[in-house]
Amino acid sequence: MPVVVEVVLLRAVPQLAYRMARGMPLPGEVPDSAALRLAGLPEDAARRAELVVHSTSWRYERGEPRVVLTYVVAPDPDPTRPSRLVEGVGIARGDSAACPAPERVAAGEVAAHALRHLAFLEASDPVVRDAVARVSGLTAVMPSFEPDVARRLHTGP
């Protein structure tokens, strides 16, 4: 089954925004390296203290049967490229407990999930916390995202 790497590239200046990049790993390329390449970063960028690159989720896409591995990258190495503001914190979910995979996942839902996951890491991983602190403007927006790795659904008040 094919694997696709999807990258949510974040920028926090002047507002929290994101853009997406997707592609398949090259032959012999590991997904982490594919995420760096798709972000437009050199392989040695992973050693930068002011850079966050982290796998945040995976999902199965039924339309073209494949597994999508999602990474968050902050900061976006090319903030001049078109982006979308992060708005809302939608949750992608299936129709029932027996069918948890949604038919379709919107880019905004993927970005919101990546930010919740990053907030979780910022709260629980000192290495990520230090890196997030070095990304211009990112620390200021992180409190607006509830730290979570797999969003809990609230059914009541």
Rank of each mutant, 00 (worst) to 15 (best):
R104K: 13
G63M: 13
R129C: 07
G90I: 08
T56L: 02
A17Q: 02
M20E: 15
L69C: 08
A12Q: 00
V73T: 04
A35K: 06
R11Y: 03
P77M: 03
P77R: 08
A114C: 03
A39T: 11
R22A: 13
G28C: 06
A131Y: 14
Y18F: 06
L36I: 00
A131Q: 10
E64P: 12
A34L: 08
V52K: 08
V53L: 09
F120T: 02
S83Y: 10
P25M: 09
S33G: 14
L115A: 06
P65T: 00
E50T: 04
P25A: 09
V132H: 00
G40D: 07
R48S: 09
V89I: 15
D125K: 14
E43R: 12
P82D: 04
D78M: 04
S55G: 15
V105M: 11
A92S: 06
P147G: 03
P42K: 06
S96C: 08
C99R: 13
V110Y: 02
L85P: 11
E146P: 12
G108Q: 15
I91Y: 13
E61W: 07
S57L: 12
L138S: 02
V7I: 10
V110K: 06
L9W: 02
A119K: 04
G90S: 10
A39C: 01
R116H: 11
V8W: 03
M20A: 05
L138M: 07
F120N: 02
R37K: 07
V13L: 08
F120R: 10
V132L: 02
R37V: 03
L10F: 04
L36T: 03
R37C: 03
R48D: 08
R104N: 14
D32C: 13
P82H: 10
P147F: 06
D130Q: 12
A97T: 15
E103Y: 13
H117N: 03
S57Q: 12
G90D: 07
A111S: 06
E109D: 10
P147H: 07
E43G: 11
R19E: 09
P147W: 00
S96G: 12
R48F: 08
L16C: 00
S33V: 13
L16K: 02
R81A: 10
A112L: 04
P126H: 14
P14W: 09
P79W: 05
T139F: 01
V86N: 01
V89C: 14
V86Y: 04
